[in-house]
């Protein structure tokens, strides 16, 4: 019995010692690393979810920059600008200008097909760029003759931020594609 016990004890004890030794040397650190990584992943995911979540309650903080328009050649005029939103989500719901009968957001797809959009989402933390060949504000029925250097006042109406007015600089048409790569 004693022998057996000893043998049994020795066996399992020795075995477990060996195993635990092996585990400490190889499996132990790895499992710890795995646990740490897993923990970091979880913490990171939670942090990202918390920080990056578009908090619908946060007020939008929209700034409008780089507003420019090409010289007028027809009765329409495109205005390009960047909407930067450092707060919660917002939507551009309307636009107007004292210089135009109507202002509407237009998107242009890859093949140059224009699509009118009555609204333009400005997600939380996003920069929405209205650029030549892409989305732009189209001014229809532009009455005033506009030359390079003039400014066109543009009133943007946001769902939550309310009204924001910006002056678009009139620039030479060909300059609108000058800063494009390639």
């Amino acid at each position: 019995m004693t022998d057996e016990r000893v043998t049994e004890d020795d066996g399992p004890v020795g075995g477990s010692d060996d195993r635990s030794g092996e585990a400490t040397e190889s499996g132990g650190p790895w499992s710890r690393v795995v646990v740490v990584i897993a923990a970091l992943v979880v913490v990171g995911a939670v942090a990202a979810a918390v920080l990056g979540r578009a908090d619908p309650g946060a007020p939008p903080a929209i700034s409008v920059t780089d507003a420019r328009a090409g010289e007028r050649v027809g009765t329409t005029l495109a205005v390009y600008l960047t909407l930067s939103n450092e707060g919660g989500p917002d939507t551009l719901v309307a636009a107007g200008s004292p210089d135009a009968a109507r202002v509407q957001a237009h998107g242009t797809d890859e093949v140059g097909m224009m699509r009118a959009s009555s609204e333009l989402d400005v997600p939380a933390g996003a920069d929405v760029r209205l650029e030549p060949g892409g989305t732009h504000l189209m001014l229809e029925g532009v009455g005033r003759s506009l030359a390079v250097g003039d400014t066109v006042p543009i009133e943007l109406e946001f769902d939550r931020s309310g009204s924001v007015t910006v002056d678009a600089q009139v620039v030479p048409l060909e300059s609108l594609v000058e800063d494009r790569p390639g």
């Binding site: 010289e71 050649v73 027809g74 140059g112 030549p132 060949g133 060909e174 594609v177």
Partner: peptide
């Protein structure tokens, strides 16, 4: 009446 593509195309080529 094209606001975006046509005038930029024509102006770049013209200049």
């Amino acid at each position: 009446s094209c606001p975006d593509v046509c005038p930029i195309n024509l102006a770049s080529l013209g200049s």
